[in-house]
Write a protein that binds this DNA or RNA. Structure first.
Lengths: 345, 345
DNA sequence: CCCGCATCTGACAACGTTGTCCAGGCTCTA
DNA sequence: TAGAGCCTGGACAACGTTGTCAGATGCGGG
């Protein structure tokens, strides 16, 4: 029994290590390390021999071991809501680009709007010792991250603020954007304006609702309960909500739609109606300008959100960062027709 | 000078280790390991003490060290083209879901259609010892992965086949889909049918072009060079290409568009034309049914591609897999109006 | 009362890498 | 030619975890 310790099962399929490379090249272990890391102090001739050995064996440095030794993983984590949502694609890509510029890789996971899953994911990433974490919160209590933050994990929240923890946040001006969007409808002469949004427990949804209410109040219009749908996100329920506020004795003449997923359904419903109803939607859509009429939107810049957050993350990692801050990015009203339809009553 | 070796800079901000937990709980290191991993053989009382210690110190197991010891990372890598592309969002999400079901995390990176960057990314993932790799190829030579595959990295290619290496591939039936789409246009009476696609060096683009040619040949229609645009992907060039084939003495009466990015531009151009030109597009679009006319598409199932690839990857990891295979998923023609317009000449 | 056995616990090595430090050989100068 | 100083290379420990194995403890039976 020559081995006292059984090798763990299928350990990397027995990859060559620096030791193997060193043995083959007839040099010391550390010399190989030097070559691999481009450190100075190796003769060209030695370097050549080592390099040849590396190529011959198909050696690739084991970053797990490296990380263990160095303490930095050059990896950041991104916890988002749903990678398949067209809003998060560009955001994620922007984070990735910044990470790449800093030589880091990106691990990401979707929380599917489930706070528990968000926590599970974030902590799994911490266990892997990501250097930093960009989180799009699903839950509203992030105290579970406190030990991690104290331990030095850089953390930035995006799109929605952190709950019960003092941390950097990068947000869109949801309130201002919604307010401006609704005000735009008011300016076209609308008074009965519907709002279809997500559950108010989601911060962005709550803020947009607040913007809606503010704009209505600015205009001195009392809001009827029947004009608001909160929390219906699946197509069927959105459809029902939209149809309801479009029917009855005093139907809404305009709708403000609270996010991109709601919008696609609302557009469908409006297209089926005889009466032309105005629409302003939060979040831009790919083909919004080609519809009849074009969809007027309050656009947020998903890529900018991601970029800003990631840049801030790396500034935390540089150590050049001071107190947590809340950064709010402006939204932009893009008029394309649907928001400029006059009231049709 | 009590320490012979300086601590690496800011090593995890001095996180507690199992040793610290053990010391505080007054137990041995291994006992903590047992508790953390839920291994049997620990008295409830001891376990309680250890758990208390863990909570008090905010300990979290360092997975890097764990990986180093165990040899499996429970992480898979996904190299795709552009996370911001709406086609890859669902694909990526599907891979993530499968990974999650197997208790693995997902690292992903975008190659931006650059073979060098693809290689760099894939190898970086291998250095991190991901258990497996799902690759959407940008390049056409993947021999660089051979040592990795031999070393036991499970590998599956998606959307496009691997180059010069024998590996699992999961593809859409690009040829068949394009052929059916073009045949559909022929069936409406079109004879002058344009094709606007990506660079033929991209496999999917080449296959779709082949499908176009095949359908035309089936119909006995010789293809004019002026009807084809290959490799223009940025909006400006697509626009020019489209406008060109729509003008002149014998303009095309129908266009087959080779991918989603091309399609959005083509739709814009067609909308500006007086004459109605038919369109069938490869890849579905979010609001395709709401345009006037609705866009007839050859839809592929991005999520199914991702799911199938990831499942195959994990079957490789289970060791239940045999020879590399090429799996082709069917596409679906969805008629919505634009593809049913008759020739307008 | 002591032995044997089962159960629980801990010491130790090893995973693959990098930081430190020292040895040996070389060059250059006095 | 000897000494100082530089350059290259290697031995060794340490990073935090887990597998192995042996020691300790307690209990029941002979």
């Amino acid at each position: 029994m020559p081995e006292t310790q059984r090798r763990p099962e299928s350990r990397y399929g027995n990859r060559p290590t620096m030791k193997d490379v060193a043995a083959r090249a007839g040099v010391g272990l550390k010399t190989v390390s030097r070559v691999v890391n481009g450190e100075p102090g190796v003769t060209p001739e030695t370097e050549r021999r080592v390099q040849e050995s590396i190529d011959a064996l198909g050696f690739r440095r084991n970053d797990s071991a490296r990380v263990l030794r160095k303490g930095r993983t050059a990896t950041i984590g991104l916890v988002l809501e749903d990678l398949a949502d067209p809003f998060y694609g560009p955001l994620s890509r922007a984070v990735e680009e910044v990470a790449r510029a800093h030589g880091a890789l990106l691990i990401n996971g979707s929380s599917a709007e489930d706070p528990e899953r968000e926590q599970e994911l974030a902590l799994a990433l911490c266990a892997r010792r990501v250097d930093g974490l960009v989180v799009i919160p699903a839950g509203d209590d992030h105290r579970y991250l406190e030990p991690e933050v104290r331990a030095g994990v850089a953390t930035v929240f995006v799109d929605r603020p952190a709950g019960r923890i003092d941390a950097d946040c990068v947000l869109s001006d949801n309130f201002g954007g919604a307010r401006a969007g609704v005000a735009h409808l008011v300016a076209q002469g609308h008074r009965r304006i519907g709002f279809i949004g997500d559950m108010p427990r989601i911060h962005t949804a709550a803020e947009r609702l607040r913007g809606y209410r503010a704009a209505m109040e600015d205009a001195g219009i009392p809001v009827a309960d029947a004009w608001m749908s909160l929390g219906a996100t699946d197509p069927a329920r959105v459809r029902r909500a939209a149809e309801e506020m479009l029917s009855g004795a005093a139907p809404v003449t305009a709708v403000f739609s609270g996010n991109n997923r709601v919008t696609v359904t609302v557009i469908r419903v409006l297209a089926e109606q005889v009466r032309r109803t105005a629409l302003v939607a939060f979040d831009d859509l790919e083909l919004a300008d080609l519809l009849q009429p074009g969809v007027t939107v309050v656009a947020q810049d998903a890529a900018a959100l991601g970029r800003t957050a990631a840049e801030r993350l790396f500034r935390q990692l540089d150590g050049t960062l001071l107190a947590p801050e809340r950064i709010e990015l402006p939204t932009r009203l893009i008029t394309r027709g649907s928001g400029e339809l006059p009231p049709a009553d």
